[in-house]
Design a protein around this nucleic acid. Sequence first.
DNA 1: TACCATATCTACAGTTCTGTCAATAGACCA
DNA 2: TGGTCTATTGACAGAACTGTAGATATGGTA
Lengths: 219, 219
Amino acid sequence: MPSPRKKKTTPTKTSLPRVRRTAEEARQRILDAAEARLRNGGPEAIRLQEIAADVGISHPTILHHFESRDGLTRALGLRITERLVADLVDALSSKQPTETSAEEIIEHVFTTMGDSGTARLIAWRALSFDSAEEARALLDSVTSLLHARRVQHANDTGVEPPSRQDSAFVARLASAAALGDSLSGDIWTAGSPENDQTNARFRRWFAHLLMEHLDKAGC
Amino acid sequence: MPSPRKKKTTPTKTSLPRVRRTAEEARQRILDAAEARLRNGGPEAIRLQEIAADVGISHPTILHHFESRDGLTRALGLRITERLVADLVDALSSKQPTETSAEEIIEHVFTTMGDSGTARLIAWRALSFDSAEEARALLDSVTSLLHARRVQHANDTGVEPPSRQDSAFVARLASAAALGDSLSGDIWTAGSPENDQTNARFRRWFAHLLMEHLDKAGC
DNA sequence: TACCATATCTACAGTTCTGTCAATAGACCA
DNA sequence: TGGTCTATTGACAGAACTGTAGATATGGTA
């Protein structure tokens, strides 16, 4: 036997059929599966072997593409943040300030956070590792967009434009409330049959509260 | 040798000095250590052996008191929630409505969430397991207290008392904002030297916003 | 003092998870 | 067709963690 390893070219064991994807395609599929696991099972559900099973590959393939488990979680966190911010930027810039009301946008933020479990992902990120650096620039772009809208609207209607800090605080409050409420919202409405109704009412109530401020300080 | 086990009463290996505590005392110390680990290291830092080392005991002792790792995390989550709510109830009921302003209370909520890392613990709880049942009744008591204050204040000043739903929404928004902001606040202020100043300013800004509403709907 | 309940310990079993290594096979190109 | 690049795999190594079992010591009590 010239083989330095024991035996193990056993032809009885049929190898899994190999599907060769591009590196990018493989990365995306792995991230998708990891994200699904995180949503359903919480922070401790990111297991290389399980994720690999979901995708239908072996776990060393994940390590090949992401270096380590840490590399995977880092890439996942970045993708989540980027997608969320892109979604927001899209909502903020798609229509003219007068067309899309602030209420719609707030509703949009809450929906995105809640429906897709994004809040869970963000919270996990905040818990697990220092996520400040990359996210900062992204959030800044959201603030800038919001501020630009408000300034333009103020100019159009001839009222005093708001300060940039006020815009930053509006964005910060909206995101914090959406994040916090998505995490703890179930607690407030648990047991009552009209959960969704109450949740929706709360969001409208909050949007109304915020718009009163915007009306005063410039929408 | 009457010993059924092999050998192993090796007198060379000095056993750790045993400290016998009451069950309650032991439980509290273990929970303290677990909480500290969770604060600093995130969700995955709850390791029985490390916690045991912190307390200065062996890890089977933890299992003796909490049955399993899951039992420990459950007890920890319950303790965190109870302490937070007790703190809030205390703040709400300690003074007369007119003496303690809403601004003070909001500041209190944010401080508690942020300073002690309570937000991290709450978020971890929300992520890790279903926490709704026990917490619901606790939060309800907070809402009741807040509502009672507002009704009393309305009667004193002769204005229309607010609806109970409005009080529930105020409490829900304040807690959600505090939770969300504590989790993501670092992102907004990262890099700037006057972090604390900005954070404090944001809290006051929010308190002011909320008080405008309370003034309208009854403090 | 003798006894009991139980908090605590040491040692180990069993599982699971990440990461490494060398071999293999699919895709693209000359 | 033959060759190269690299995505993929099986097998294993090594570590860590939870949980179990039986022995032991400690504080209170009769």
